[in-house]
């Protein structure tokens, strides 16, 4: 019987999809717990013991200075070196929505996330097409249906061609909801272990959550991504 890998969900004041991420991780076969940066400043042991890290979505510090900026700053101060060492050792990290914005600002992922082209927060379902490349989280994954819920999700990168050459474009929107460059919904670091994406795969982990379920329809579960992450911990 395989041991369930330990997953740690990082949160800051205003993170609010941490419990949704825990539910998804548990369903994907991990033992998940939540730690705030305040907890880790007291005692970093849970991070040292983790085999998979999620930077969860929400409105850390109310997005007061722009999404993820304050979270990134404190992340860097409190656990920056440990998190970089975790990534260097091949540990899988996923930043979802505000977590993506945070990892970009912290320099672990390329590009930037600006205000949606609509100028507004948008909550709607999207279909994500996994792209061929280096990302361990999306390898062999079927297209995923899940919701977006963000106001600052327009992905911007000065050289998308370079990202593509490196295989770092992990997920594309089938229909671009927010004006992201080249329909990019998710990108990874050059090694493929760190994935950031704006949509919320943790909110489509059982069939009933799909809005077309009542019509007998549905689509690919976001759970696939968490399963890939968990499988990666078993490989490494």
């Amino acid at each position: 019987m395989s041991v369930r890998p330990r997953a740690l969900v990082l949160q800051a004041p205003g993170t609010n999809r941490d419990h949704d991420a825990v539910f998804a991780l548990e369903l994907a076969g991990a033992d998940a717990s939540i730690a705030s940066l305040l907890d880790l400043a007291d005692d970093p042991a849970p991070l040292d013991a983790a085999q998979l890290v999620v930077v969860a979505g929400g409105f850390s510090h109310a997005d007061a200075l722009g999404a993820g900026r304050m979270f990134a700053l404190s992340l860097d101060q409190v656990i920056g070196d440990r998190l970089r060492a975790f990534v260097d050792s091949g540990g899988p990290v996923i930043g979802i929505c505000n977590g993506f914005q945070t990892l970009v600002r912290a320099g672990l992922l390329p590009g930037a996330l600006g205000h949606n082209a609509s100028g507004s927060f948008q909550c709607e379902w999207v279909t994500l097409d996994p792209q061929p490349g280096v990302c361990v989280w999306t390898e062999g994954v079927e297209p995923v249906d899940c919701p977006i819920a963000h106001g600052e999700g327009r992905y911007v990168h000065p050289d998308v061609a370079e990202l593509e050459r490196n295989g770092q474009v992990a997920l594309r929107y089938r229909r671009n909801p927010n004006g992201s460059d080249a329909d990019i919904a998710g990108v990874c670091d050059p090694t493929g272990v760190v994935l950031g994406l704006m949509p919320h795969p943790e909110n489509h982990v059982i069939a009933r959550q799909h809005p077309l379920h009542v019509r007998g329809g549905g689509g690919g579960l976001g759970l696939q991504l968490f399963r890939r992450g968990v499988e990666h911990t078993r490989r490494s």
Binding site: N16, Q122, C123, N203, R208, P211, H213, V214, R215
Partner: peptide, 20 residues
């Protein structure tokens, strides 16, 4: 309706907007 997050917590089974 789309300005409000009605998906968080993953509990919304029948949403304010439905259909094909």
């Amino acid at each position: 309706v789309r300005r409000y997050d009605h998906e968080i917590r993953g509990t919304t089974v029948v949403r304010p907007l439905v259909g094909a």
